[in-house]
Simulated assay, not measured.
Amino acid sequence: MSANDAQAISQAYSTNGLTADKADPTWVNRCSQDLECLDLEEEQPLAQLSSIQTDKMTLFFTELLDHDRDDVICDQDFDNFFEKLAHFADWSTNSSEFHIMLEVKREFIEHFINPLPTKWAELPYYKRVCGPEAGGMAGRTTLEGWLARWALQLSEMKRFVDLPLYLQYLCKIVFHVIDRENMGEIRKPALAAFYRSVIGLSAKRIEEIIDTAYDRMTSNSYLILDYGTFVHCFTNWLMGKNPNGPGQWVLVPPKDALPQPPFPVDYSALNTEPAKLEPYAPDKKTNRHSVIV
């Protein structure tokens, strides 16, 4: 190939976004306008909720905060939610519980209404869904922004003690709101009253779900729904990524029927005297109905 031929070919490819190295005829794509190129500024969330987590947090948004159904929430919506909790629990404005609740409310506004920290706010995805224009004006959060913020909050959380303090206190607040008679445990009538007065479920809906809800939260009444058990339920509400967890009944119960567990759990064997337990042997016939694993 002559020098003139090489120059002519180089000029021809340059017009199409390709250039040729003069020393070595290797063609390099310079990404013309006609070609799709990798966009380094492409919107990508740093964390995402599972579908089950999305369902639970969506119900929190739509059923407990966005009462005017305008698809955005603001600090006033948190005022209304926490006022409803305080009213149901009959907490006076001078009580320690009420003041702790106010601090938790301020933290919710800080994390879910106020601007994100700079390390996230300048990223393209979060600028779009959580920026000042996302809700039509500053100080408002859309459902998409709400879910994105929860994903960031929960991405590194594995246990209850990993949660920020305001979420740990929210767990305690909700427990004491439901157990407003200070029994030290949540009983089925108390849970039903909470569903009716705070969540706003109809009597018919409560009758349909209350047994299932209480069974899921107490392992079919094997456990007492005291604060320790409720902590596990609350943790599952935030972090549980699969259906049929007890956390789905902590605040707003699921609207759709849940899939049945793949197999029933028999807790009676845990209370059986050791002498009456039959050792398992694969080659031995038995009348057993369950196996302790």
Results as ranks from 00 to 15, higher is better:
residue 179 D to G: 10
residue 179 D to K: 09
residue 154 L to R: 04
residue 209 I to D: 00
residue 189 P to G: 07
residue 167 L to K: 06
residue 182 N to W: 14
residue 150 W to I: 00
residue 149 R to M: 05
residue 151 A to G: 00
residue 159 R to G: 01
residue 209 I to P: 01
residue 194 F to R: 01
residue 168 Q to W: 04
residue 196 R to H: 15
residue 181 E to Y: 15
residue 195 Y to D: 07
residue 208 E to V: 11
residue 186 I to T: 00
residue 205 R to T: 02
residue 201 L to R: 05
residue 194 F to A: 01
residue 167 L to V: 09
residue 155 S to E: 13
residue 208 E to C: 12
residue 209 I to C: 11
residue 158 K to S: 13
residue 165 L to F: 08
residue 153 Q to K: 07
residue 158 K to E: 15
residue 149 R to K: 10
residue 177 V to P: 04
residue 206 I to V: 13
residue 172 K to H: 15
residue 157 M to S: 06
residue 174 V to C: 11
residue 180 R to C: 06
residue 166 Y to G: 08
residue 202 S to C: 04
residue 191 L to P: 00
residue 164 P to C: 12
residue 152 L to T: 01
residue 194 F to P: 00
residue 211 D to N: 11
residue 173 I to G: 06
residue 178 I to E: 02
residue 166 Y to V: 02
residue 158 K to M: 09
residue 178 I to V: 09
residue 194 F to I: 04
residue 152 L to M: 05
residue 173 I to V: 10
residue 168 Q to K: 03
residue 202 S to V: 01
residue 170 L to Y: 04
residue 149 R to T: 01
residue 195 Y to A: 06
residue 201 L to P: 04
residue 176 H to E: 15
residue 206 I to R: 05
residue 166 Y to R: 05
residue 174 V to D: 08
residue 157 M to F: 10
residue 184 G to C: 06
residue 160 F to Q: 06
residue 211 D to P: 07
residue 155 S to R: 10
residue 197 S to C: 13
residue 193 A to C: 14
residue 165 L to H: 06
residue 186 I to S: 02
residue 170 L to H: 05
residue 194 F to L: 04
residue 173 I to A: 04
residue 203 A to C: 11
residue 161 V to N: 08
residue 190 A to V: 09
residue 207 E to M: 13
residue 198 V to E: 04
residue 168 Q to R: 04
residue 206 I to T: 01
residue 189 P to V: 05
residue 155 S to W: 09
residue 170 L to C: 06
residue 202 S to D: 11
residue 210 I to V: 11
residue 211 D to S: 10
residue 168 Q to G: 02
residue 145 G to E: 10
residue 165 L to W: 06
residue 170 L to S: 06
residue 146 W to F: 09
residue 202 S to L: 01
residue 144 E to M: 12
residue 153 Q to Y: 07
residue 145 G to M: 10
residue 167 L to P: 01
residue 175 F to Q: 07
residue 171 C to S: 02
residue 205 R to I: 00
residue 208 E to I: 11
residue 212 T to M: 12
residue 148 A to T: 05
residue 208 E to K: 07
residue 182 N to V: 15
residue 164 P to N: 07
residue 171 C to M: 02
residue 206 I to H: 02
residue 160 F to N: 02
residue 157 M to W: 03
residue 185 E to G: 07
residue 155 S to Y: 10
residue 156 E to H: 12
residue 144 E to H: 10
residue 150 W to C: 05
residue 210 I to W: 04
residue 197 S to M: 08
residue 201 L to M: 15
residue 145 G to H: 09
residue 180 R to Q: 04
residue 203 A to R: 11
residue 193 A to H: 09
residue 190 A to T: 14
residue 172 K to V: 15
residue 212 T to G: 13
residue 208 E to N: 14
residue 201 L to C: 08
residue 211 D to V: 10
residue 195 Y to I: 09
residue 191 L to K: 02
residue 203 A to T: 14
residue 146 W to M: 03
residue 154 L to G: 02
residue 210 I to L: 09
residue 153 Q to F: 08
residue 164 P to I: 13
residue 190 A to S: 14
